[in-house]
Design a protein around this nucleic acid. Sequence first.
DNA 1: AAATTATTTAATCAAATGATTAAAATCAGT
DNA 2: ACTGATTTTAATCATTTGATTAAATAATTT
Lengths: 212, 212
Amino acid sequence: MAKKVIADIEKNTSTEEKIKEAARRVFTQKGYAATRTRDIAEESGLNLALINYYFRSKEKLFDIIIVEHLQLFIHSVMEIVNDPKTTLQQKMETLISHYIDMLIENPYIPIFVLNEINANPEKLIEKLGFEKMQRENLYIIKQWKEMAAAKKTPAINPIHIVVNVLSMTIFPFIASPLLRNRTGMSLGEFNKLMEERKKMIPVWINAMIKGG
Amino acid sequence: MAKKVIADIEKNTSTEEKIKEAARRVFTQKGYAATRTRDIAEESGLNLALINYYFRSKEKLFDIIIVEHLQLFIHSVMEIVNDPKTTLQQKMETLISHYIDMLIENPYIPIFVLNEINANPEKLIEKLGFEKMQRENLYIIKQWKEMAAAKKTPAINPIHIVVNVLSMTIFPFIASPLLRNRTGMSLGEFNKLMEERKKMIPVWINAMIKGG
DNA sequence: AAATTATTTAATCAAATGATTAAAATCAGT
DNA sequence: ACTGATTTTAATCATTTGATTAAATAATTT
């Protein structure tokens, strides 16, 4: 049996993994409340009972999916944010760029995550493993404080800057269906527009800091 | 009976209106899929069967709620956008200001609307009555074309500007639970921050247009 | 007040849905 | 090939959930 398991894991073709992949697709597209366990069974082409055989319940499966998804993402963010070799400016640029790449691949993630947090704030936030984001140990915080000490920090409340970066990066993907409907854009055109923003958002942020 | 109906409408205390108000609250907080008709009955303090007596089904009730909600909003936007007495700059300022006021009152609206559009793009978009937003007849479009003719239009693709205005205005409310959890902000502090943005977003947009 | 109409209630239905079970099929080690 | 464990299947259960019904109550009209 051991051999088979290893082969399965390598090819990501084990039943357990098939269910998880199907669940990921269905959950992220329809949200927790709207997905039926039968949807996941159908999407994976597997028997309904297998979902409860491998994961005890719909909720447990959901928890695993969302935690895996987000911890993967958080990890990649942390690597960028904690890199001692890059400047603040570079961190912002690579962060936006990576984020947009990820969002082009997984456009449903933000609306899914934010919607689920909205539906169940306390429960989900603790599951996200944000404890790992301890501000004190972050290299980026050091850099920010150094800038503040050198009085190079702009007059704007830094929260506004963070909010603006996140807003301009993430929101277009959340509003994508509406936006594309209104403008008649294709998905390809939309993605091209998002690619443009990789370079533009940092420029805009800088303009804000200087001009605002 | 006529007397009672009038009195009820005036006081917004008719059974029908009570159901709609309860439905508005529950639907916008939990989304369509997660709300049970029994939740609405409980929220309104009324009998479950009344929901089907006054509105034929959960879906019909939902349609009425969301259409009313959005048409009210669209109407207010149209008034601002179609005002011949204001400049483009003024339009942007009042639009952002009104939008933020609305969002402080109804913070659940954006995530609710965008989530439902996401779950069912074709169906919902047609219900929103966007046909009324005919670009040709809008005064703001005239103004934009005049600016373009005078070559005062910036080099940026105007879609980016629109997207940025909407992003910076709406996104903070969508991310509010997460944002407040991360920063430890209270709702009051959050709203104060949003009030600040009324004046700042137009300034930032101008800085972008000049500097970007 | 009697008759008619509108509203509300409690009980119930049928379908959907998450979960379970017992039997069948498959697999690993001998 | 045989044995024991694991995995898969089909059938079924118990709840939940949207919807309906028939009777009761309240309001309106005549």
